[in-house]
Design a binder for these strands. Structure first.
Lengths: 122, 122
DNA sequence: GTAACATTTGAACAACTGTGCAAATGAGGT
DNA sequence: ACCTCATTTGCACAGTTGTTCAAATGTTAC
């Protein structure tokens, strides 16, 4: 797909930009609501605390206060973040008495995690 | 790796948590500075504007003001975001006269992009 | 030199986000 | 009934973020 015509390649006045094609791309961007969701997924992964929680849970199923203990955060803070992760179905939990044991809910997450590491290493 | 002992499985008092293993995990978390970088990568991808820019650039190399035109944003806003993307080496640019043509700088990004979509679709 | 244009940069502002505190909820034991 | 403990939730506040405006930078043409 071509967004600009070559004839417009030497200037940036809006006048020269191919209106039809720009319109097409805009429509594409709008129609694909997925972008918002995708950004939301990455945004949730884009916090040090949450990415650590995800890593910890990829190692072992844990309850809230243990996660808090490992991360050195308040139980409340962890619970807040777990809710965020739950909303995007990245983690799940099972109740056992008073405790809530959290674990990863999606296989894709580990893949995203590792692929992200790939980029970091470069 | 085990973070908690089974003996501690029915309570959450810090006293009962295996201090050695918690310490080990904490040390692991600290030593792996990568987590911060990884979170930063995801954070940068976690913005609607930036994810759209990345998508647009995966289609075609474009100059700043055309990206702004397609997204309906000010040139300044786009330039700010492009700098963020440049800092993480997600996009690169070549100068040609007054114009700066941006394109993707990393093959991994497309993969991350698509893998993120996988999760959304579920 | 000046003028025009694309881009970058800094400042300011509103909007959002992560955390801790305190109160509320829920679930087991006595 | 009560008490205890794990978790959740609402609130407040500091810190961060995305945008726009205006000024600065850099490049081309005259």
């Amino acid at each position: 797909m071509v967004i600009r015509d070559k004839i417009a390649a030497d200037t940036c006045d809006v006048y020269f930009v191919d209106e039809n094609k720009v319109g097409a791309v805009q429509k594409l961007l709008e129609s694909i609501v997925v972008f918002s969701e995708l950004a939301e997924l990455f945004k949730v992964l884009g916090d040090p605390t949450r990415i650590k929680i995800i890593y910890i849970l990829s190692v072992e199923e844990l309850c809230v206060c243990d996660i808090a203990g490992v991360l050195g955060l308040s139980v409340s803070a962890v619970s807040h973040q777990l809710r965020t992760l739950r909303n995007l179905k990245l983690v799940k939990f099972r109740r056992e008495g008073k405790m809530a044991y959290y674990s990863l809910d999606d296989a894709h997450i580990s893949q995203l995690f590792n692929q992200g590491l790939e980029h970091i290493k470069e």
